[in-house]
Design a protein around this nucleic acid. Structure first.
Lengths: 333, 333
DNA sequence: GTATAGAATGTAACCGCTTACATTTGCGTT
DNA sequence: AACGCAAATGTAAGCGGTTACATTCTATAC
């Protein structure tokens, strides 16, 4: 790779001038700019971004720490962030936290040591206190999919309570009164919020929450299957089931079919997340939309605005989920 | 952030010594090593990887260029690479090519400018010639999911022909004789290879290939639906359909159901890729496994071995796909 | 006690770029 | 023609590390 030095030699100017035309900052006379540009072209020069960021103490790149790189939720999030950042000419550096406290810290250190200009977090294991403490660190950051009190301006989040309400309300309006609930791990914020929404909607209709038709799962397919089996085993009466995410809903579907029941005739099923393959299921899954791609984009724009001063597109920090009605849930017969 | 300078001050040694204990290379006396370690701890020192890689001209990080960051295939690939690299203490830097020639080149330049020690490519738009030309560039690289002749040792690939054969053979063995085929875009290598496999298997059984029951799609859901409709429109006779990927299979499923037909009774359906949600479909999709996560891991190990000299795990460069039988395809009635 | 090899440590150049500051150039005035 | 000033360009000191080479210890042998 050619260096700035070779370019300056070829163009017959100093290093500083070459640097100037690269950053097209301080005025350079059109004539020399041309000479330099020509030299760059001729040498197929590409600036060494490592050296740039060491010297300038900024890197045009933002660090992104997510729990996973794959899967319908994280994949979508990551893509949203990447696209928006790339569009603005910034780079994304990813680190993976695997929902593990230590790995999340390692990831953050990695990103910091890469001279990132800002950080975008999707953290699951780290506590609110830890996040609050980061506030004082030099690097600006945004938190996606979580609302930390005291850090409201730094959060892009989803109204999970409303999501829970929407799902339950929809079923209530369809005439269901006995609605089973398969929850996510309650020690995670969103699972608790979704359940709270469920209870709220129930209360609205004057229906008491029955713990006997609720099971706590772990957000994975298998656990939806197991939970559904448990529900059947309890011989409790219910005409509809809400799953706190689509993964578990798919497991529940299997169990329902195994039971010889059909959806939505015998039982109505509602999921949460509106994962890409939700409409591929049969019956097509009615679910609550989780605009995770949009949230990723917003996190990126937050950084673009607050760190780079690029503010050409609107930013939304709080999202209201809506139910998307498909086939898996219907009127109570 | 503390710098190496502050550490050296606090420990009462020179920069070089601190650097030495970091890279625990040249022997340092246990006593001074302790002093330095203590100083690092006290200052919560984390080396600036940017500076390290500028100075050392290596970065402990490998560049990964993929077409997309999300989706069942790419997500899986990217995760496999990342996990394997992280396990070995190396970092991954991602760039996205979006199946666009220009963007792929930009991505490569970005990665090069980040001082990556090696590159992992999943390229779709770039030509074989381009890849061949890279061979002379200083940076070692591996190509995933593509077999470029002249670059065999640098490729991790899938036997797509065999995949096509397996899918078709399976149906033939089930008694099917009129097998429709919905292909991927034929200008892409894998789509052509899968189709070639299909034809080969047909020939084995002495059955002529009938272009009237084949449609070229674009690998997206919608195109599977459209292709299936076309097939029905042609009034051609067929008892089974192979889709060159699971995405299109899901679209085809919809069209089949709309036609009032059921699987596998009226029509057998086989997909390709064994995407994560293939078993969630109903009927559960019979498909050809595409071990893309494994291939990603192997690409990572290739780099670990050939670039970093870490060779503790086996490497497989050529993969033979196998059919995974589920419910969507059965015996011809 | 002295010579000496090898280990431990230090010195300083350098990686490729940015940028504060210094110097030169060009141009309008008088 | 001489002057002044702003614009253009150059100089050189970092950014935070690595590493070749030089120097200083330390321990052993005589």
């Amino acid at each position: 790779m050619a260096t700035i030095y070779e370019v300056s030699k070829l163009a017959g100017v100093s290093l500083a001038t070459v640097s100037r035309v690269m950053n097209n900052s301080s005025r350079v006379s059109p004539k020399t700019r041309q000479k330099v540009l020509a030299a760059m072209q001729k040498l197929d020069y590409h600036p060494n971004t490592i050296a740039q960021s060491l010297a300038s103490k900024r890197s045009n790149s933002v660090g992104v720490l997510v729990s996973e790189l794959h899967g319908p939720i994280f994949g979508s999030l990551v893509s949203g962030i990447e696209e928006e950042l790339t569009r603005a000419g910034k780079f994304s550096i990813f680190a993976v936290g695997h929902s593990d406290g230590e790995k999340e810290k390692d990831g953050i250190n990695f990103l910091i040591s890469r001279n990132c200009d800002a950080l975008i977090f999707h953290l699951e294991a780290s506590s609110d206190e830890f996040l609050l403490a980061q506030k004082n660190s030099a690097l600006p950051f945004v938190i996606v999919n979580r609302l930390v009190s005291g850090l409201e301006e730094n959060c892009i989040s989803l109204n999970n309570v409303k999501g829970g309400i929407e799902a339950t309300r929809f079923l209530l309006k369809q005439g269901h009164r006995d609605i089973a609930y398969i929850s996510g791990p309650l020690h995670w914020g969103d699972a608790g919020q979704r359940l709270a929404g469920h209870k709220t909607a129930l209360a609205e209709f004057g229906i008491p929450f029955d713990p006997n038709i609720m099971v706590e799962g772990d957000y994975l397919v298998q656990s939806g299957y197991v939970a559904m089996k448990q529900l059947f085993g309890r011989k409790a009466k219910f005409t509809a089931v809400i799953c706190a995410n689509d993964e578990m809903a798919v497991g529940a579907m299997d169990a329902i079919r195994e039971q010889g029941l059909s959806m939505p005739e015998d039982i109505s099923l509602v999921g949460f997340d509106n994962v890409r393959w939700a409409p591929f299921l049969s019956p097509k899954l009615t679910t609550v939309n989780n605009p995770v791609n949009e949230m990723g984009r917003m996190a990126a724009r937050w950084v673009l605005k607050n760190v780079y001063g690029i503010n050409d597109r609107p930013i939304q920090t709080f999202f209201e989920p809506e139910i998307v009605v498909r086939e898996s849930a219907g009127a109570r017969v």
